[in-house]
Design a binder for these strands. Structure first.
Length: 238
DNA sequence: TGTACATGTAAACAGTCCGC
DNA sequence: GCGGACTGTTTACATGTACA
C-alpha cells in the first residue's frame, strides 16, 4: 500500500470476547499443559497456542481469555487465574460449574446482556442490539453467535431463554456435555447475590405463541395454569 | 495535563487446501 | 493448473494507562 495515500479512519469496536467461552477454556487448558500456571509473556503464550508469535489472531485469542478472567495480566506477563484452575482442575463438578458461570459474567458486555435479557428469550436481532452497544456492524453477528454459544455452554440458556440463575448447569463426562440440575449452594448463592438478582422463570410455547416470564416471586403451578390458559386463547380460530 | 508505551482491533495480504 | 475458501501474518491505528 502506498503510504502517501490518505488512509480511511478505521472503525474501532468496543471490547468483546472474540471466541466462545468453550474455546477460551480449551485455549487456557492448552496453555496450562504447555507452560504451567505462569507467568509467561504474550509471545510465549502465542507460541504455546501454536502460533509463530504475537499476531492479530493470537493476540485476540489471548485477550479473550483475559476477558473471561481465565488469565491474569500483570504488566507484560500472564498467568493462569484461580478461575481457570477451578475449571480445569476442579475439586467437584459443582465448583467447576460455578467457575464457568463466573467466567461468562466476567466480560462487561456479556454481563450487561445477561442482565438485560434475564428471563427473556434471546432476541433474534441480537446483532443489531450489539451494534447499538458499540460493536462493529461487520462482526456483530459473530459476537452474537459467540455469546449464544457461551450461554449454552455455561447452562444459562434454556429453550432459548436467558436464565438468571444457574438452575441447569453443565458438567462433562467422557461422552461429551450433559446437563445436570443442581440445587442452590452457599457458593453459587454468593455468585447470584453478587452478580444478578434471583428471579423465578417460566417459559412455554404453543401453536403460534411463545411466552417467557420472570418474577421475583415464585411462579406456582396455579399461576402457570392461568398463564397457559390465557395464551391458549390465542389459538382459538375466529 | 501531556507523552510514551502497551494492548486490542481492523484490514490487507499471503499461504494452503481442496474441488473441479 | 486454476480459482475460491479458509486460515494465519503483518501492519496501521485507536485506546487505555502509567508516569513525569
Amino acid at each position: 500500500m502506498n503510504k502517501d495515500t490518505i488512509q480511511k479512519k478505521r472503525e474501532r469496536s468496543v471490547a468483546y470476547p472474540s471466541f466462545s467461552l468453550e474455546q477460551a477454556i480449551n485455549s487456557v487448558s492448552q496453555l496450562r499443559k504447555a507452560l504451567g500456571k505462569g507467568p509467561y509473556s504474550r509471545d510465549e503464550a502465542a507460541k504455546a497456542l501454536g502460533y509463530s508469535g504475537v499476531s492479530g489472531i493470537s493476540a485476540t485469542k489471548i485477550s479473550t481469555m483475559v476477558h473471561f478472567g481465565l488469565l491474569n495480566r500483570n504488566g507484560n506477563t500472564y498467568s493462569q487465574s484461580e478461575l481457570a484452575e477451578r475449571i480445569n482442575h476442579q475439586l467437584s463438578d459443582e465448583d467447576r460449574n460455578n467457575a464457568i458461570v463466573e467466567a461468562i459474567l466476567s466480560p462487561k458486555l456479556y454481563k450487561e446482556l445477561i442482565e438485560q435479557f434475564a428471563g427473556e428469550a434471546l432476541p433474534v436481532q441480537l446483532g443489531n442490539i450489539l451494534i447499538r452497544k458499540g460493536i462493529s456492524s461487520k462482526i456483530s453477528e459473530t459476537v452474537a453467535t459467540n455469546f449464544q454459544q457461551s450461554l449454552e455452554f455455561s447452562g444459562l440458556l434454556k429453550n432459548g431463554v436467558v436464565l438468571t440463575s444457574p438452575e441447569f448447569l453443565i458438567t462433562t463426562d467422557n461422552d461429551g456435555i450433559v446437563e445436570k440440575e443442581i440445587t442452590p449452594t452457599s457458593s453459587n448463592k454468593r455468585l447470584l447475590d453478587e452478580n444478578i438478582k434471583q428471579v423465578y422463570i417460566f417459559n412455554d410455547s404453543g401453536d403460534g405463541w411463545n411466552v417467557a416470564i420472570k418474577s421475583e416471586k415464585p411462579i406456582t403451578s396455579k399461576i402457570k395454569k392461568l398463564i397457559i390458559d390465557a395464551m391458549e386463547l390465542l389459538e382459538v380460530k375466529e
